[in-house]
Design a protein around this nucleic acid. Structure first.
Length: 564
RNA sequence: GGCCCGUUCGUCUAACGGUUAGGACAUCAGAUUUUCAUUCUGGUAAUAGGGGUUCGAUUCCCCUACGGGCUACCA
């Protein structure tokens, strides 16, 4: 049992949170991890008793263990985030382990894609196949030889057995035992004596089959009527009846481990102290707990936390329906190498990584205050698994965009400049003057929700409008207005200092002189300079555009308006 | 079907037995900006239902309902 010393000012200067969501007040420096040796009281919010603690000798080590089979979606990135935040909060290490034990699902490029996503989000691992580390290899396919011995050990100890059933036989079993009451029969204690395995077969038969090189798997022998329970950092105590869990395959016929074996063996070998994963893993947790008990001892098992699911409009977000919701689900764009189908990601949609992390962090966690905008550093400082709540969260794209808008507004011009610049370049907008670009960004960024909005909001600074929203002007266009702009260009030439205030002043004076309401003239001017009904205040645009450009654009548009 | 997890405004959430149930997004109305956005002000809007426990339940327990997940030699 671990305790986290956490700063808390509500009741005491410091108190600790235990993983089972009990808070015990205690005077210790915040941020450090301790092992609880004894509890003074079982349940008491205000605990004045003494607590026996031992500084944690092990460094916190957490891992994200994806299977490289495609795009990395929201839920995956949030799991990465919570792992990363927890590790950094406690001065620990964040490890990336590639779970590629299913050779039939190998997808070229998927692993590199994961590195790219982590890089973009800024959640880079301390150890990984790419970054190296002392506990490698970090790719399970390269650890293949390691796993068999553990499976064999379990067989020897009577906790697992060989099974020779072919895929066809398994299918037949599922078909034969399928009923209304039991739509999906499991390979479990009720059925294993009816299958071809070393439990039903004699030792001689088994030995012969193996000697003959018969393809076989190793399955865990789930005990009957045992209760397996463990403490989840988010949910508290969770328990299962082993009778209803099937005999999961541990080692596949090709010699590769399944997830169940690999996760336990590797978490042990890699000295993982806390294991966080999606809630979809909860049903197989008893298998993993049992494996820990049999193989490495429950006292060495990491603390588990099963993260609530992020839901799409129709339940769990799936990699498969990547773009069907009308918003991205992947961190970055992913192209399926088989179908060549491109699914747009948050990055390409125009999200800032800071905003992406921020919104993901708040999807299932909050710091207890009303703060919603957090930098990565603040998140590291404030994150705690105890404040992750247990219910699933439906993803709200509108709120996601709000986060991005806030981040764009909040970002310094210089910090987003290169992103905007490359965005412009991708859209054939030539940026030759960086100082000018900075001015444009400064004047425009408050009205950009997505990075891609900079194109509409900013491109006209760099190139003349290609199209004019003439319909916005035409109905009210007349000779008097035309004359106004004719004289206005002359006035502009004489402006002493090219500043928006002077331009506006000249504009209004002339309008008064000619007895036209300035409001009637502003929209036409905007259309002349911008091409449409958008952009920052029109006189600021004129200032940035410079005298020659402004006059030129007015003259050009004037002939267009008059001709039409 | 079985097992597990969950359930506070439409959405994300706050509340550690005592609050007029708070905030944010969205939405609506208004102010400002006689482009749009920003900004500001205000409004609508929630404890799934039923039983307990308690002086007092959003909060603890039980049942029901609903939602989700799992039920592969996939992770």
């Amino acid at each position: 049992m671990w305790a986290v010393i956490k700063s808390e000012i509500k009741y005491f200067p410091f108190c600790i949170y235990t993983p089972d969501i009990r808070r015990i007040d205690f005077l210790q420096p915040p941020g450090s991890l301790y092992k609880i040796l004894s509890h003074p009281y079982k349940d008491n919010r205000f605990n004045y008793g003494s607590l026996s603690l031992q500084p944690m000798s092990q460094k916190v080590r957490v891992r994200f263990a994806p299977s490289p089979t495609g795009g990395l979606h929201l839920g995956g990135v949030r799991t990465v985030l919570y792992n990363y935040l927890f590790a950094k909060r406690h001065g620990g290490d964040f490890i990336l382990r590639i779970e590629d034990t299913d050779q039939t699902r190998f997808v070229p490029g998927a692993e590199e894609y994961i590195y790219n996503c982590l890089k973009w989000t800024g959640l880079e691992p301390d150890e990984s196949p790419l970054h190296g580390g002392a506990y490698g290899p970090y790719r399970q396919s390269e650890r293949k030889e390691l796993y068999r011995q553990y499976a064999e050990q379990l067989v020897k100890e009577g906790r697992a057995y060989y099974a020779f059933d072919t895929p066809e036989e398994l299918e037949a079993m599922r078909h034969n035992y399928k009923s209304e009451q039991n739509p999906s029969p499991q390979y479990d204690h009720t059925l294993r004596l009816k299958m071809r395995n070393s439990i039903r077969l004699s030792k001689e038969e088994t030995d012969k089959l193996i000697a003959d090189g018969t393809k076989h798997v190793i399955r865990i022998k789930m005990p009957e009527r045992e209760t397996v329970s463990f403490k989840d950092m988010i949910r508290g105590e969770v328990s299962f009846d082993t009778s209803v869990v099937d005999d999961k395959v541990l080692l596949k016929a090709d010699g590769m481990p399944t997830y169940h074996l690999a996760v336990v063996v590797d978490d042990y070998l890699m000295k993982i102290t806390h294991a966080f994963r999606g809630e979809e893993w909860l049903p197989s947790a008893p298998v993993h707990v049992l494996l820990w008990k049999y193989l490495f001892g429950l006292e060495n098992m990491p603390q588990w936390a099963h993260l609530p699911l992020i839901l799409g409009p129709n339940g769990k977000l799936s990699k498969r329906d990547g773009a069907k919701y009308g918003f991205p689900v992947f961190a970055m764009s992913w192209t399926d190498p088989k179908t060549n189908e491109l699914t747009e990601g948050f990055k390409e949609k125009g999200f800032l990584p800071e905003a992406f992390i921020n919104l993901l962090a708040l999807l299932g966690w909050n710091d207890g205050t009303e703060q919603e905008i957090f930098s990565k550093e603040e998140l590291i400082e404030k994150f705690s698994m105890e404040r992750v709540h247990s219910g699933g969260a439906k993803f709200d794209y509108e709120k996601a965009k709000w986060f991005n808008h806030e981040w764009i507004k909040k970002s310094a011009v210089k910090s987003i400049k290169s992103k905007v610049k490359s965005l412009f370049e991708e859209n054939n907008i030539i940026v030759s003057d960086d100082t000018f670009l900075e001015k444009v960004i400064a004047v425009v960024k408050d009205r950009c929700t997505l990075l891609s909005d900079f194109i509409q909001q900013g491109s006209f600074f760099f190139q003349e409008p290609e199209k004019y929203d003439i319909d916005a002007v035409k109905p009210k266009w007349n000779e008097a207005k035309k004359n106004f702009f004719l004289s206005f260009t002359e006035e502009l030439k004489a402006i002493p200092e090219w500043k928006s205030a002077f331009i506006e002043d000249a504009f209004k004076k002339l309008a008064a002189l000619q007895n036209i309401k300035p409001g009637e003239l502003q929209l036409p001017l905007r259309i002349m300079l911008v091409g449409g009904k958008f952009g920052p205040p029109v006189f600021e645009i004129a200032e940035l555009l410079d005298k020659e450009n402004t006059i030129h654009r007015i003259q050009k548009a004037l002939s267009l308006f008059s001709a039409g």
